[in-house]
C-alpha cells in the first residue's frame, strides 16, 4: 500500500499543478505552437518574396534570425501589451454600466485604502509591499500597469529597430537609399504596422466591454452569471 501511495503521490502532484495552472500552461503552449506556425508560414512567404525580387531564398534558421521575422513578431506583442496597459489604467477611471469588465459605476478612481486593503487595512495574507504604506505600496499598487506599459514600450522600441533594419533591406532590394532610425520613425511603413495593430486591439477591448453587458458565457469569469440582470455591473460568473 505504501508503494502504491508513493507512486501515485507525485502523479497527483503533477496533475494538481497542471489543474491549478491550466490557463498559464495552455496559453504558454499555444503561444509556442502559434509562434512555430508563424515561423513556418513567414519563412515560406519571405522566400516567395525573395524569389519574385530575384534574390536567393534563405533557410529557416536564417529567416528566424532576420529582422523581417523579428518585426513581424514584436509588432503584435507591442499592441497586445498596449491593449492590457490601457485597459488596466482606463478601468480605474472609466466604467461601463452593466459590464462584467467594469467595476461599479460609483467606484471610479483608485478607491480607498480600506477598499484596496493596503497600509493599516492590509490583511495577514496581503503582500508585504501592500502593508508597508510607503513608496513600496505606491509602486506595488501600480505594478501591473507599469510592467504591462514597460513591456509595451520595450516591444514597440524593438519593433522600431527590427522594422528599421527590415525596411532598409527592402529599400536596398528595390534599389533605394536606406534611411536613418529617426527617419524610419516618420515613415508611413512604421506607422502603418503600428496603427493596424492598435486599431484591432481597441476594437476588441471596446466590444468586449459592451457585449459583456448583454451576452453571457456560462462559467466564465469574463462574463456575468447567466441569470444576472443586464444592468448589473462588475459581477463575474
Amino acid at each position: 500500500m505504501s508503494t502504491t501511495a508513493n507512486t501515485s503521490s507525485p502523479r497527483s502532484g503533477v496533475r494538481r499543478v497542471l489543474h491549478d495552472n491550466g490557463l498559464g500552461i495552455v496559453f504558454g503552449v499555444l503561444f509556442l505552437l502559434m509562434l512555430g506556425g508563424q515561423a513556418v508560414s513567414g519563412h515560406a512567404y519571405f522566400n516567395d518574396q525573395q524569389i519574385s525580387e530575384g534574390v536567393e531564398p534563405v533557410s529557416l534558421g536564417h529567416y528566424l534570425t532576420s529582422s523581417s521575422f523579428a518585426v513581424d513578431v514584436v509588432e503584435n506583442w507591442q499592441s497586445e501589451y498596449l491593449q492590457f496597459f490601457l485597459y488596466i489604467f482606463a478601468t480605474v477611471w472609466l466604467v461601463q454600466r452593466g459590464s462584467s469588465e467594469s467595476k461599479e459605476v460609483d467606484d471610479v478612481g483608485p478607491e480607498s485604502e480600506r477598499d484596496q486593503r493596503i497600509g493599516p487595512y492590509a490583511g495577514p495574507g496581503s503582500p508585504r509591499w501592500a502593508r508597508t504604506g510607503d513608496w513600496r505600496t505606491v509602486v506595488f499598487s501600480r505594478s501591473l500597469g507599469l510592467v504591462m506599459g514597460g513591456i509595451f514600450l520595450l516591444s514597440w522600441g524593438a519593433q522600431s529597430v527590427a522594422g528599421w533594419a527590415a525596411f532598409n533591406a527592402e529599400q536596398l532590394t528595390s534599389r533605394q537609399d536606406p534611411v536613418t532610425w529617426p527617419a524610419y520613425l516618420g515613415e508611413p511603413e512604421f506607422w502603418n504596422r503600428t496603427t493596424q495593430n492598435w486599431q484591432s486591439e481597441m476594437l476588441a477591448v471596446g466590444s468586449m466591454a459592451v457585449l459583456g453587458v448583454y451576452l453571457r458565457q456560462r462559467g466564465s469569469p469574463e462574463s456575468k452569471p447567466v441569470g444576472a440582470a443586464h444592468a448589473d455591473t462588475g459581477e463575474t460568473g
Binding site: V55, A165, N168, A169, L172, D177, P178
Partner: peptide
C-alpha cells in the same frame, strides 16, 4: 557603404 540584412549598397 551600407549593409542591411542580405542587401548592400
Amino acid at each position: 557603404s551600407a549593409v542591411w540584412g542580405d542587401q548592400a549598397q
